[in-house]
Simulated scan of single mutants.
Amino acid sequence: MRAIQITAFGGPEVLTEVELPDPVAGPGEVLIDVSRAGLNYADTHQAENSYLSSMTLPLVPGGEIAGVTADGKRVVALTSGGGGYAQKAVAPAATTFEVPDGVDDLTALSLVVQGATAWLLLRKSAHLAEGESVVVHAAAGGVGSIAVQLAKLWGAGRVIATASTEDKRKLALDLGADVAISSTEEDMTEALREANNGRRVDVVLDMTGGAVTDQSVAALAAFGRLVFYGMASRERPKPVQPVNLLVHSTAVIGMWLPHAFRLPGRVVHTAMDEMFQLVLDGKLRAVPGGEYGMSDVRQAHEDLRARRTSGKLLLDPNR
């Protein structure tokens, strides 16, 4: 089968197209003929081994796939430790979800990582209450574009989007954001207050890191929450001093999707079922961000790292 393999960690240059034997499903696993794989910013960390979980070589990257099982079911799945950038892949049955008729691969792949992340950020981590203001950094990206829509559907009083270009800010407004500001504002604290009609903000969803995180924490209202789920800038924010959280009774919370599968009650399955229904009801939509073939995968990672993308990126392993 055709696959992308990494034999040395690094940037996009380490992604190499190869022929590999078909994988074999073990106990509790499902073999899937991959029709599309998802391309995520986290994959760029995986390639350079700077992700939260360490990788081992050789590695076929990619954590999410859509395709068909041996018994003909259309599914979307999260793999275990990579394997997604290939024509065939195995995934744990526990992280494989049947896709309803009427939901295409793009939408299914938009939901399984980015959608589930957005759902958990708002419902489980931030515990969004009706009427609260929500800041969504990188609002035109995979998680951000879903989070903007869910926040509005769930009664947010004001959704404030940040994005790097005018086109991305327009997209965020089209998705339901009340206001969109530049992600390069020199004083993000003041910019967020101004965007919230002079008031501090209640919830911030942040995957940027660095000064954006520091200044967003400073913009939180009493009992405000910042949920930190990535570091796209590759710049670490300043250490949070617990005593400083007392000043406005604020909270800084971390969230990493794999931890949700350890929770009782099949929380991620609940999230997927709810979002599939919202899609079928016409209340939630995926934003297409472009499709790449196997020979273009290095370009895909370059585009991700340069933050030139918006919406959901797909890899076609048969092209």
Rank of each mutant, 00 (worst) to 15 (best):
A163G: 12
S164I: 10
S164W: 12
T165M: 04
E166A: 12
D167W: 03
R169M: 11
R169N: 05
K170N: 13
K170T: 12
L171Y: 05
L173N: 04
G176I: 10
D178M: 09
D178Y: 13
D178T: 10
D178Q: 11
V179M: 06
A180P: 06
S183Y: 05
T184F: 07
E185A: 14
T189N: 14
T189G: 12
E190F: 00
A191S: 04
L192Y: 10
L192A: 13
R193Y: 01
E194I: 10
A195N: 05
N196A: 14
G198P: 07
R200Q: 12
V201C: 12
V203G: 00
V203R: 05
V203M: 02
L205H: 02
G209W: 03
G210Q: 07
A211P: 01
V212Y: 01
V212K: 02
V212F: 00
S216R: 05
S216C: 14
S216Q: 06
V217K: 12
A218H: 09
A219Q: 13
A222Y: 11
A222I: 12
F223Q: 13
L226F: 08
V227Y: 06
Y229F: 15
Y229W: 05
Y229C: 13
G230P: 02
M231P: 09
A232T: 15
S233W: 02
R234Q: 14
R236I: 10
K238D: 13
